[in-house]
Design a protein around this nucleic acid. Structure first.
Length: 399
RNA sequence: GGGGGUGUACUCAAGCAGUCAACGAGGGCAGACUGUAAAUCUGCUGGCCUUGUGCCUACGUAGGUGCAAAUCCUACCGCCCCCA
């Protein structure tokens, strides 16, 4: 059993963690409670709305890990019920409701993904359908009586929607209540979440006080945006790096989608590398070092965290080889063909493109190479044992 | 319940009978340039093939008018606003 740490310096150090944006009700109060020596429980709730955890999720996970290291009990709450409702946070449109099946599919790998980050500390997994699915209308109304409509519509994204004449559904109002009720159901001592979750987390704090007369602490983490420009960290949603991406993908996506100005922030928020090292490296970069080097260090670190040292080493080598030197990667996806076929056919049948038209377009755009030669004719035949390059970084080998 | 508005490709958004597979923007893809960056420039962005002033499918859904419909009519469905 891990002993609860009550060393004031360590607790203050924790509160100054670079992951933290704010704590509620106040730093002083949090110190007081953490110093009590009681083993407390903290949780992070994640709705399985997509099949993978990405860089953004890793921030509260890392913070949760620190709480675990202080000797407290940590819980990963899978919002299997809430995922079906949809958190209206930061969305200008109502989220498409997920079916129970989609949710189930999505959460399959959540725990193993979270493990990659929480590895050193033990954690418990809970599912909020356990209590939310059981509530009856009376319970819901009781809960709803604790929050006013004014409080709800005061939230910016609801204001946005009203302004843009977009619909707001009643069930979306219910979302914060449900998330708040999670705290009550678990009689939780504290919650960790991105700062966009502040409202939802505070509803939980209010509910816990009202229904259990218990004080809940709230830790909000910084978000992955550039503080000075407010720009998103990656150039696109699609480029979001996922914990269960392949090692090549984690490395490649990092190199490809993290803007230079963001490298430092991602290091700070998504890794556990000492601050002094980050500052030092950032300084060197600012003094003119090719930012590619710093970025490669980030890519390496992320792969190392998720997949281990060896994988990181390999991913780096592979990257150097394929992109810096323009060689072929070690492992190329293979596709079996029965004798020579036209290039368009191979691309389509292998699923590398969705239609023959797309294949033809790519050929017209000089994006297809077979055995190192750019293909210009749709009818070009591909023999068994050929290596096809599609665009800048996709490869296929026929066999 | 009454009145007004609206529904277009991944998203936003023009079009309001033929020249519409549908302007523009964003996103995505590809090419040039690079550091697989960013910025910039260029092209592409429904499907099929026999690549054509070709065929099929698509402008909420179902019908209708007409040589011809995303565009007009009818019904239905959804959404927004105002009044009650």
């Amino acid at each position: 059993m891990v002993k609860v740490i009550t060393d004031e310096n360590k607790i203050k150090e924790f509160l100054n963690s670079r992951y933290i944006e704010a704590v509620f009700p106040s730093k002083e109060r949090v110190v007081e409670i953490l110093m009590s020596g009681n083993k407390l429980s903290f949780y992070l709730g994640i709705d399985p709305t997509s099949p993978s955890l990405h860089l953004g999720h890793s921030i509260p996970l890392l913070l949760l890990k620190q709480l675990g290291k202080l000797g407290h009990k940590i819980i990963l709450l899978i919002g299997d019920f809430t995922a079906q409702i949809g958190d209206p946070t930061d969305k200008e449109a109502t989220r498409k409701a997920l079916t129970a099946n989609e949710v189930k599919q999505n959460m399959k790998t959540y725990v193993t993904q979270a493990e990659r980050i929480l590895n050193e500390v033990g954690f418990e997994v809970k599912y909020n359908s356990k209590w939310l699915a059981k509530m009856n209308l009376g319970d819901v109304i009781e809960l709803a009586s604790k929050v006013t409509v004014q409080q709800m519509i005061a939230r910016d994204m609801f204001q946005e929607r009203i302004k843009n004449e977009r619909p707001i559904y009643v069930h979306e109002f219910l979302y914060p209540l449900m998330q708040g009720y999670d705290s009550v159901a678990m009689k939780i001592d504290g919650e960790v979440g991105g700062n966009d979750q502040t409202f939802n987390m505070m509803v939980g704090r209010d509910l816990e006080k009202a229904l259990l007369n218990k004080e809940k602490l709230v830790f909000t983490t910084r978000l992955l945006v550039d503080a000075s420009t407010g720009k998103k960290i990656s150039k696109s949603e699609g480029g979001m790096i996922a914990v269960n991406d392949s090692t090549e993908d984690v490395f490649g996506k990092t190199m490809h989608s993290i803007l230079d100005e963001m490298i430092k922030t991602v290091f700070e928020l998504c890794t556990e590398v000492p601050q002094s090292w980050i500052d030092e490296r950032d300084k060197v970069r600012q003094n003119g070092e090719n930012p590619k080097i710093f970025k490669e260090e980030l890519a390496y670190e992320l792969v190392r965290m998720y997949h281990g040292e060896k994988a990181a080493e390999k991913a780096k080598e592979n990257f150097e080889k394929v992109f810096s030197q323009g060689q072929l990667p070690d492992e190329i996806q293979e596709f079996k063909i029965n004798g020579a076929m036209t290039i368009v056919n191979v691309l389509q049948v292998s699923g590398m493109v969705v239609s023959a038209s797309e294949a033809k377009r790519l050929i017209d755009q000089k994006a297809i190479e077979v055995n190192g030669k750019t293909v210009s004719d749709w009818g070009t035949r591909v023999e068994i044992g050929s290596t096809i390059k599609i665009g800048s970084h996709r490869f296929l080998k026929t066999r």
